[in-house]
Design a protein around this nucleic acid. Structure first.
Lengths: 216, 216
DNA sequence: ATGACGCATAATGTCGACATTCGACAGTCG
DNA sequence: CGACTGTCGAATGTCGACATTATGCGTCAT
């Protein structure tokens, strides 16, 4: 296995990312380099590299000569991101549909049931994690590295949104059924059908999330 | 209009990008920060920012503690990139298909004929430019900012590949007909059909480019 | 001759400081 | 009273230098 060759940059990224997840950084808020530097006890150079990286991920917005801000997504941008994710993952799954074995499908079903359990017990972190793994299993059968790359990038962004609103979006039964529905479509080995199914899956969630955001 | 607020980083990016297009930087070659710094008469800081930016675009590959290298795309990666572009642009066009006016279509047709002319006269730069504008016209009707963003990002990458091999890939007539074909499908206002048409358009080109690369 | 080891060189990672630019506040004028 | 302008503080953009690490070469032992 490759040795964990980490530079400060990665730590900084994780630090900010976690901060956003825990709502210590709010949408639209400015991020001060020198502040972070003092906080973490390092110089501004690695901080700047981390910020630039997160800008390219779309998690931050950069204004030249002004600074970096936590991305404040409009309702439209949220929907767009979910739709894009649906398009990409839909293609991924369709493209790799022949590579799913019976064991894969069984494992996915188990995951869907676990989701329901975690949702009932209000174990937010476990639920999110297994949700992520479920979809990772789905699109990792795709051999198109470029598509997979974009999908992962979007995953980061949506993760944060979903993390905030998970509890109000779907009931435990809905979560389970929505994913079981995907699996049964998967069994049909119909590339076109599964592609549209995945798209709808994300579009529906995007709309729900936006409804929560605007309804606050 | 917004004032051109440029920092060194943007200049450096353009410098390297042009260098790659003019084949002064070859695939796999290492890029030395200090070398660039002396060459451009600036310090390494903005150089590093530019390099990081190009890494996130996929134009460079970064190895920690080692350096940045010009991306050496394998045949598979080239195909993947074209397929991904086809998926994204296909969705873009399908999603915005109702927004194309009769004037838009006429303008696109004119562009297709200009392509043929430029191709005949071996005006490479003009051909590439108008090709870029053609596809930009196609997907800019899409209101999904996220999809458009990814599409533009990929455009950068593919631009370089196409720039090298343009002359051997399609005949002037083929270029014209391939694009006229898209336009006539566009007139049918069939979202599903146009999506697949665009995908095929890119997949075909990807395969041709790879054939050139490997056949050298 | 070949392989491992260690050293020298040079590149990257990080640092602290300076220059430049932005944003806010106060003061002035209409 | 409101709007414009000049000034000031603070944050970003850039710099040069140092610390750390990878790579290539030479040496030595097998």
């Amino acid at each position: 296995m490759p040795i964990e060759r980490s530079t400060y940059k990665d730590h900084v990224i994780k630090y900010i990312y976690d901060g956003m997840r825990e709502n210590r950084y709010r949408a639209g808020e400015k991020i001060l380099e020198s502040h972070l530097a003092r906080e973490l006890g390092i110089s501004r150079a690695p901080i700047r590299e981390a910020l630039a990286d997160m800008v390219s991920s779309g998690l931050l917005v950069y204004r030249p000569q002004v600074g970096n801000f936590v991305a404040a997504l409009t309702a439209k941008e949220i929907i767009d991101s979910y739709v894009a994710r649906g398009v990409l993952e839909g293609f991924s799954v369709a493209q790799g549909i022949e590579n799913f074995t019976a064991e894969d499908l069984t494992r996915l079903e188990e995951m869907a049931h676990k989701m329901e359990t975690f949702a009932r017990k209000e174990k937010r972190k476990d639920l999110i994690d297994i949700g992520q793994r479920f979809h990772e299993e789905l699109f990792c059968h795709c051999t198109n590295t470029q598509v997979v790359l974009f999908t992962r990038q979007l995953s980061l962004k949506l993760h944060l949104l979903f993390y905030k609103h998970w509890s109000r979006v779907y009931s435990p039964e809905e979560i389970r059924d929505r994913h079981l529905d995907i699996i049964s479509t998967l069994r049909e080995k119909d590339a076109v059908k599964i592609e549209l199914k995945i798209r709808d899956h994300y579009i529906a969630t995007g709309k729900k999330i936006v409804a929560q955001e605007t309804g606050l």
